[in-house]
Design a protein around this nucleic acid. Structure first.
Lengths: 223, 223
DNA sequence: GTCTATAATTAGATAGAC
DNA sequence: GTCTATCTAATTATAGAC
């Protein structure tokens, strides 16, 4: 029997190459689209050579899929904040729970601009890639957010707006500034999007979608 | 002297070719990005041959610029509705004026999905093309919308939110459903985005950004 | 003005040395 | 696993007949 655990120095280097290719791929695909991004520039950004892509991922298409999985797992990590966890236990979603979701989304997407750039570039034209990404990644997000809104609406907690309309308005309002950051820099100046912007944006999302803090229930004195 | 006014049959055909190339170009650039769109597919979509692009526009780059001008002039036509004109006379913008602007924007962008697809694809990475489009087209729109919001906010008519944050939230909320229409069809079904959706979306934008109809001023009986 | 033919460049993928 | 060299196909742009 051959050694089943060969281990480590060459393997570690290979893993680093793989990881670097994934990060470079998302950045290039986000900036230039699938067809526009060349495997040569991806490899160059990753500090390696073009044939490494075919070695590690077989094809440009497989590289794209691996890169998308990679960045969506980063998104899942980024939204799963402790603040959010307090609201996602059991039971029906509350106004404060949805506010926490909105804040978590803004925080997460502001740190992953490549994800939303890639998404918006892919979602603008139908393709096998779009079908794959919808079934694998975005349908679950849609069901969660649209379902939460519908539940809040049916209990009179939020405005009477269709959940599909809210979903796209919400995703657009949460991501556009970060997706279009290169434009925003030209429009408003170098330091547009900083920590203060992100915090203010998160609070603005709560104000916009949930309206002003509801009046506390009339004091019935039981406490 | 040669005939200075040769006129018309060949010229008319040339104009038709030019126009067809412009429409085809926007569609292809929106779907695949600048690098991803090939002059061959653009020419094929326009029902002509690839060298016609170089004949009529010198280069792929010049074609892109002409196509962008073309679609932005369509946008200007689409937003300039009679309903909007009633509010854009002189004087300070009102709540109802901004509501009319929001409705006009939703109507216009829903009918020009290629414009916003192209914009979002270009705005995701800095480039000479982005610089050109910002100075030539989007800065004026930003100044108008951000200025209107700032004016409303300073008079206490809308929520205390920074105008740059509102601008991107508004553009995102207004356009995302149409930019991502291919995804929406896969997510929700064939007939998601129809006339009823657009009307409901326009009203939702008013509700979201301007809040509930303000209470009429306390009846002071003067009228 | 429109077409066919083609030049020059660049794309994704593979072969084979190390 | 990583590199150089290279194959095939597709790209933008040009030349020249009509």
């Amino acid at each position: 029997m051959v050694n089943v655990m060969p281990v480590s120095r060459p393997q570690a280097r290979a893993d680093a190459t793989r990881e670097a290719l994934l990060d470079a791929a998302i950045a290039e695909f986000a900036a230039h689209g699938f067809e526009g991004a060349s495997t040569r520039s991806i490899a160059a950004r990753a500090g390696t050579h073009q044939p490494q892509i075919n070695y590690h991922f077989d094809s440009k298409d497989e590289l794209w899929r691996a890169a998308v999985d990679h960045v969506f797992s980063k998104l899942a990590d980024a939204v799963a904040t402790p603040e959010l966890a307090a609201f996602t236990g059991g039971g029906e979603i509350t106004r404060e729970g949805f506010a926490a979701v909105l804040r978590a989304i803004v925080r997460a997407v502001s740190g992953l601009p490549e994800l939303n750039r890639m998404m918006v570039v892919e979602a603008t034209a139908d393709s096998d890639r779009l079908a794959w990404i919808v079934e694998r990644h975005t349908r679950g997000i849609y069901d969660l957010l649209a379902g939460a809104w519908r539940s809040l609406r049916e209990r009179g907690i939020v405005a009477e707006i269709d959940e599909t309309i809210v979903y796209y308005a919400l995703i657009g309002a949460a991501t556009m500034a970060y997706v279009n950051a290169p434009e925003a820099r030209r429009l408003v100046g170098e330091r547009v999007i900083d920590e203060a912007f992100i915090d203010a944006h998160a609070e603005a999302m709560v104000t916009i979608f949930l309206g002003p803090e509801p009046d506390p229930p009339p004091a019935t004195r039981n406490r």
